[in-house]
Design a protein around this nucleic acid. Structure first.
Lengths: 110, 110
DNA sequence: ATATTGTTCAACCAATTCGTTGAGTACAGG
DNA sequence: CCTGTACTCAACGAATTGGTTGAACAATAT
């Protein structure tokens, strides 16, 4: 299962081919063939990666004759970033002490 | 395949149970049993989720008698956040126009 | 010694994922 | 109309995932 937005999103980002596609789209729209060109895998495989990205809301697709230009839709990345920000204090050095402190507090419970 | 750091990391974050475990650990160390308590799934399933989180570098585990206290290790979240920051310009409104502009630039190629 | 508690390992199953190939569908142009 | 180009759908296989149960093992308590 796991159909929530964040799960679908992170799952989409968990594949290096898909991340490479996003990087390419950051430079501008591209057709499926253009996106497939740098990879060794079949066009069909790319087509399915695009479907995953679309389901995650990370791309949208247009229709221009027989072309299906893809466009980056970055909002979900903002959502992911916001989620990660919950933990920012835990990875930024200045808060390491705070985290350790909170930990000890709740362990000793008094 | 896909054994790179980022892929393993995002894959670890793609499961809601694992994200819930991280949220719990943000409040402090916890044993496997403590972590399992809120969930309906077996202890073994939790144990495997912890293994995934550990492989992603998101937790570390201690040894206290028969207990294996887990601790949040947030640095990888910082890595993920840094990766996302590449795209920040694309989801922040003030840059939407820039993105669209870049797109048009490269399409027209002149 | 034995039992109990905390945790992991191993085998298994169902569902999903990521690739393949082969067969469509949709549009453009001679 | 027929061909070529762009793309998607469907069927398939191998690998992975996320759950299960049953058996281990380690440390504590009796």
């Amino acid at each position: 299962m796991a159909e929530d937005q964040l799960s679908v999103l992170f799952a989409a980002l968990a594949d290096p081919t898909r991340r490479a596609i996003l990087a390419r789209l950051a430079e501008g729209e591209a057709t499926v063939n253009e996106l497939a060109e740098p990879f060794e895998i079949s066009l069909q495989a790319i087509s399915r990666h695009l479907k995953v990205l679309e389901r995650a809301g990370l791309i949208s697709r247009g229709k221009d004759a027989q072309y299906r230009p893809c466009r980056l839709e970055a909002e979900p990345l903002g959502t992911a970033s916001a989620w990660l920000d919950q933990y920012r204090a835990y990875w930024e050095d200045r808060f390491d002490r705070l985290a350790a402190h909170l930990e000890r507090l709740q362990k000793g419970s008094g």
